[in-house]
Design a protein around this nucleic acid. Structure first.
Lengths: 348, 348
DNA sequence: ACCGGTATCGAAACCGGTATCGGTACCGGT
DNA sequence: ACCGGTACCGATACCGGTTTCGATACCGGT
């Protein structure tokens, strides 16, 4: 930090006291119109911009909202961030992002670091933080909104949906179409807890009908060359593999749309008719699947809206300091069957 | 900010002075081992975490690197951010992100806001900032790295590649394959200056051979329903439209891979053989195109590396305060022709 | 002319850390 | 016994704003 201009410089330039300058720049009252203009002019002339450190230290107040997401590579999270950014636009608040790489130690560190910035609120992905991290959130003394999941015990507020239910629901929809010989392809299910919940929900729906996955690839222990693969490519290869092992599947459930799209790529290349010969189901309703309209069934999640709602929830909690706001917002995914929609019960 | 624990609390708990506590926590020297442990224990016990405002205000020093990107929706920018994050991992520095939505006023505001945080460095997307914004960057008094582009006049340092050249190069490669009847599909070329540069470079290569685009869609003035479309979907529709107007094209150049992929979707649906009947070329080499290996020609850009290099450049400038580091890093995209590679000059 | 009220301003204290510098204790060497 | 050097510690003065509170000027009303 070099010899930047300070408020004292502005005050001197405008011929008023520091206090008057401070008030004028912040639009506080108790300053004459003449001085407001004088100060603002002076500030512009000497190229002054405030010092947030001094300001926040003194006022014990910040405009920061900490947002913690697990990844930037999965397009879903930038979309959530985008929602937060949009909802905060026009307000005094400002998002600050942190990335954890699905690592709970990194999550703890990121959070500690954020708290040292004394944010006015926190938005954190997921409900399954370890106890130490939970305590950090609980003791933060600011509104905390956990997002993307509701299967668990929120620290404070919560915006999202049940992944267990999402898995259960799409399974039900697929089963109603008569699909019975169902396989599963996922990736890093040991780390991606929400994907694991979806799989679990799906499994429950199968069990309710006396069924199980014919075969499943979880991708928990990947070799190095597998890790290097893009999601789409991974989905493609695993589909190839799964269908080699189980050629008679009539449906594959993927842990997300990227993988499902990879599966579709395999089918197109192999001349397999989707969804008539085999149905594919993913999760999220990413833009990617719009390229082949209707081919992949999916659950349309409201990522951006979740970001927006979370931000808005914090805004509300902040203005009415009371706890009169709802602590839970559920944005249930909509099931999109695509071309499957028109198929009547295959098993009949 | 509530009644959080302060350093004084830690000091009292540990039975030392504020200064000793401060030194102990920061790993400064001049503290006995016994006291270091006592203080650290005390800090943990009362749940203390520092106050960055007080710290930075006092030390006149921050660990922040401001990163300004135009968008979160285009996966390329999260990838750049990811690169910055990775390169900064393990150092004391920390990225702070700002999004401009391709709006130069928003860019100015974001930058001003960032500067009020007295960052140690700035990474800004693009070279074409308006004069006022340029001045802000130039006067910031910290290392500034502009990324993603080198066609222009950098404020300070610069990491990226020439989009004009990228357009020219892929055009040359396509022309060498004998392709002649070439169309163009872009989106919001009035806002996306770098895409416009690529188109311009492509055009120059055509002109050098006495050719022009047979037809071009720039998508500068979109209707509302067009704006709502995802990039892939937009690419698909525009390809349909372009081929309706010009059925005899043997190649389409898209402003990026999302659009090109949309084009591929159209072709697959319409039973058009890619690349033998028509070649498609995009830009970026996104994971999305790996689903159909080799179908789409593209320029593989090193997004993540650009982020890493930019961050590393700032790190270097910061440690050796001298200007002995190179101010320009070019990461020229690699041309990927895919299946086109094997085709011999079609026009022969 | 006197008074309460309002508008406007500035001096001083303070936010929670860190830089600086001076002090104390203890060491070995002469 | 005296000295220089080293290790360790803490009092104090800031950093650059904002909060607080008291001072001043001016107003219309009586």
């Amino acid at each position: 930090m070099k010899n930047r201009k300070t408020l004292a410089d502005v005050a001197a330039e405008a011929g008023v006291s520091k206090m008057t300058a401070s008030r004028a720049l912040r639009g506080d009252k108790d300053v004459s119109q003449a001085n407001v203009e004088r100060v603002k002019l002076a500030a512009r002339e000497i190229g002054y911009y405030g010092n947030q450190f001094a300001s926040s230290l003194s006022s014990k107040h910040t405009d920061l909202i900490g947002v913690v997401v697990p990844s930037l590579s999965n397009i879903v999270f930038p979309q959530v961030m985008s929602g937060v950014t949009d909802a905060l636009k026009g307000t005094a608040l400002q998002p600050v992002f942190g990335v954890t790489d699905y690592d709970s130690d990194a999550e703890y560190d990121t959070l500690r670091n954020m708290l040292s910035w004394r944010p006015a609120g926190l938005i954190v992905t997921g409900l399954d933080q370890p106890p130490e991290t939970r305590r950090l959130l609980a003791d933060a003394g600011v509104p905390v909104v956990q997002i993307m999941d509701i299967d668990g015990d929120p620290v404070d507020a919560c915006v999202g949906f049940s992944h267990t239910e999402a898995g259960y629901d799409i399974a039900t929809a697929l089963l109603e179409k008569g699909l019975r010989r169902i396989g599963y392809v996922g990736r890093k299910l040991d780390q991606d807890l929400r994907a694991a919940k979806r799989k679990q929900g799906f499994k429950t729906a199968l069990r309710d009908r006396g069924l199980t996955f014919k075969d499943a690839i979880d991708g928990s222990d990947l070799t190095d060359d597998m890790i290097a693969l893009s999601s789409v490519d991974y989905g493609r290869r695993m589909t190839t593999e799964l269908l080699r092992r189980q050629p008679d599947l009539d449906c594959i459930y993927f842990s997300n749309d990227d993988l499902a799209f990879g599966g579709l790529c395999h089918c197109i290349a192999a001349g397999i008719d989707v969804p008539n010969q085999i149905a594919l189901a993913g999760f999220n309703a990413l833009g990617i699947i719009e390229g082949f309209p209707g081919k992949i069934a999916t659950s349309r999640t409201a990522r951006k809206t979740i970001g927006e709602q979370a931000a808005r929830m914090i805004l509300k909690t902040l203005e009415r300091s009371a706890a009169d706001t709802s602590k839970l917002t559920i944005l249930k995914p909509e099931i999109v069957l695509g071309e499957l929609e028109t198929i009547n019960n295959k098993s009949e």
